[in-house]
Write a protein that binds this DNA or RNA. Structure first.
Lengths: 187, 187
DNA sequence: AATATAACTAAGCAAGAGCTTAGGAAAGAT
DNA sequence: ATCTTTCCTAAGCTCTTGCTTAGTTATATT
């Protein structure tokens, strides 16, 4: 017995995500969001509660967007090679132009590192933990490994992946390829 | 024939630098700056022209602060070992508490990556180039190296260093050590 | 058709941003 | 002591921020 929404939340949030991805949280204003999403502030706030609400939903949307390559990593059966492919897939996502560069999760982790925002930090930690566990799982498929070396290597790869995402915003394709090649040269 | 300044620019800029280092550019307001620097906005603007002026001067101040470890790197004579030491020195700078974590240059590079601000981007590129050239120089001191591999390795180390600075904000000491150890394991 | 409920528009709110300015205070030159 | 030049205080300027609200429009139910 009432009027229907003229937009779908899943659709407008995608536009929001791209904006946050490109500019970060603070540099994206609610006015910019309403233009990009094609809805006005009232609708935004009634659908997502707050700017932070839009942002958290954007992160979920992003996770959905990259779920494909994460599943690919998870289902890979060639150990360390699967992780290497994951690295290449990651920068490929952001190199189809018109897409922002870098990784939204990593960008966010950086922007909020010192702020200590709880809801956002939690999202990031959760995501990072998932990736690390997959790395460990894949590394376990490899040759002789004592547990300690395994953790060491997982930490290395996790930070390397994070570094890659950051580097992708600034460095060129050749530099990134050089980086990945040497990262995996001795596994 | 006039009144004298009640502060020294070199002293107040250090406080500004710490604030920018901790919060980034956008999240640091002029009101916060005047409290931290102990001078009011009039003095700030008459000494540095604008908020961005304060920021650019803060970066110079930061470069001065880390010049020690860069000179140490430059003067090292044990090739790749010198670079490894440089990595450890870099995270040491930010692990004496009361200092912000990460690297101001890297933070800035990240924050302004998509903005395309000219003055700031130029500062970053200049600094990055210097580091890369030192890396190449140190790598040249090592064993047999064709030029191409050398560039590849320099790119690797440059991105690895950048990744380390980012990681230092989020990861613990053990993870960082693991990362550095494996980064340099096969040189 | 009348009514109730939800969604839209657009205007506006307080707070904070970067920056400016008028007026007084300090100190070297005369 | 006076004058002149510089510096400091404090208030205020305009613009933008995240968010709200009054008033209107559209739709499902009766």
């Amino acid at each position: 017995m009432a009027r229907r929404k003229e937009y779908k939340e899943e659709e407008v949030i995608e536009k929001a995500m791209e904006l946050f991805w490109r500019n970060g949280y603070e540099s994206t204003s609610v006015r910019m969001l309403e233009k990009a999403m094609g809805i006005n502030q009232f609708s935004m706030y009634s659908s997502f509660g707050s700017k932070q609400g839009v942002f958290l939903e954007s992160i979920k949307c992003y996770e959905g967007k990259i779920q494909g390559i994460i599943e690919k990593l998870r289902n890979s059966t060639n150990g360390i090679e699967g992780i290497k492919t994951f690295f290449y897939d990651s920068i490929k996502t952001s190199s189809d132009c018109n897409n922002p560069k870098g990784c939204l999760i990593t960008n966010t982790s950086n922007e909020f590192a010192e702020s200590g925002d709880k809801a956002i930090t939690e999202q990031i930690v959760r995501f990072t933990t998932v990736i690390k566990e997959i790395f460990i799982e894949k590394l376990r498929e490899g040759d002789i490994k004592d547990e300690e070396l395994l953790i060491k290597q997982a930490n290395y790869l996790l930070i390397a992946k994070q570094g890659l995402s950051v580097a992708a915003k600034v460095f060129g394709q050749k530099e990134l390829n050089d980086y990945i090649e040497i990262t995996f040269r001795d596994f």
